[in-house]
Amino acid sequence: MSHEGRVRTAPVERARRYAMVIDDRACLNCQACVVACKAENSVPIGSHRNWVTEVEKGRFPFVSVQMEPGQCMQCENPPCVRVCPTGASFIDPDGIVLVNAADCIGCRYCIEACPYGARYFHEESGTVDKCTFCRHRLDQGQEPACVVTCPTRARIFGDADDPDSEVARAIARNRVEGRKEEAGTRPNVFYLS
């Protein structure tokens, strides 16, 4: 009980389970989410909390293009938290994996441990940073910056434990999958499959 602040894996007592569902087929690779995140979170040039890649497949004229928006998966079982030697990386009671910069020594072990390449080293602060699900916006009742700006509403965000939330309904109504689930990370960012 008294240890819940330093939850390693899914805590026993959770306030929420914030999650995101991304419809990558609705993604245009317009990069609005990427710039929105950059602006919202002062992400330095060269580093990214989120990204979109555009993969071309096939031979003319039978071609297809696949967009892959990526970011921290807010894992239920996050290897980044497990390897952190100082406890700076942790899961907050809403299920968000965060870095407490005050405790981070900048060893960058978590960067290696993340299977999604979701973390980056912030040269100026000497600490590691990552997607926070825009925790500071959530505190104001605002959705994350990348979510509100998306022209196609390809991102749905909310509390997956609240059955009435849009995100819970999206998970319930569609077949969704996590990326690299074989890694045992149990992502909280889902993709429509």
Partner: peptide, 25 residues
């Protein structure tokens, strides 16, 4: 090599037995 060398002591004020680096320290 740490991002914040002066904070290395934090390693010793944590209890993170599942972290190889903590154990290694």
């Amino acid at each position: 090599d740490l991002g914040r060398p002066l904070h290395f002591w934090k390693l010793f004020f944590a209890f993170e037995p599942q972290s190889p680096m903590w154990v290694g320290t």
